[in-house]
Computed example of a mutant assay.
Amino acid sequence: MKLLDRNDPFFAPLWRRVVIVAVTLAWSVFEFVAGSPFWGILVGAIGIYCVYQLFVVFEPREPGDSDPS
Rank of each mutant, 00 (worst) to 15 (best):
F38W: 02
G64S: 14
G35V: 04
G47I: 03
G64N: 07
L14E: 04
I46C: 06
F55T: 10
R6W: 08
R16Y: 05
R61G: 02
V43D: 00
V57L: 05
C50F: 12
L54Y: 13
M1A: 13
R61H: 13
V19D: 03
R17F: 04
V21I: 13
F10M: 09
L42W: 11
L42V: 13
N7I: 04
D5R: 15
D8N: 11
F30H: 12
N7E: 10
A45V: 15
L25W: 02
G64Q: 11
L54V: 14
V57D: 01
V19W: 02
T24I: 02
V29C: 00
F10C: 09
D5S: 12
L54G: 02
R6D: 15
G40P: 01
F11K: 06
W39V: 11
D67V: 14
A22E: 11
R17H: 07
G44M: 10
D5P: 03
Y49Q: 06
V43I: 12
W27D: 07
I48G: 07
P63N: 10
W39I: 08
L54C: 05
F55Y: 14
V43S: 05
L42N: 10
V43A: 00
P13A: 08
A22C: 15
V19F: 11
S36N: 08
S69K: 08
V19H: 04
G35P: 02
T24Q: 11
G64M: 03
E62I: 02
A34M: 00
V29W: 08
V21A: 01
Y52L: 05
G40N: 01
Y52T: 05
K2Q: 12
A12K: 11
I41Y: 05
I20E: 08
E31F: 03
S28A: 12
A26Q: 10
P9K: 15
P68S: 04
G40S: 00
V33C: 00
S36P: 00
L14Q: 07
A45R: 03
M1P: 10
R61S: 13
V57F: 09
I41W: 12
P60K: 09
T24R: 07
E59T: 13
E62Y: 04
V33N: 03
S66E: 13
F58C: 10
T24S: 07
N7D: 14
L4G: 00
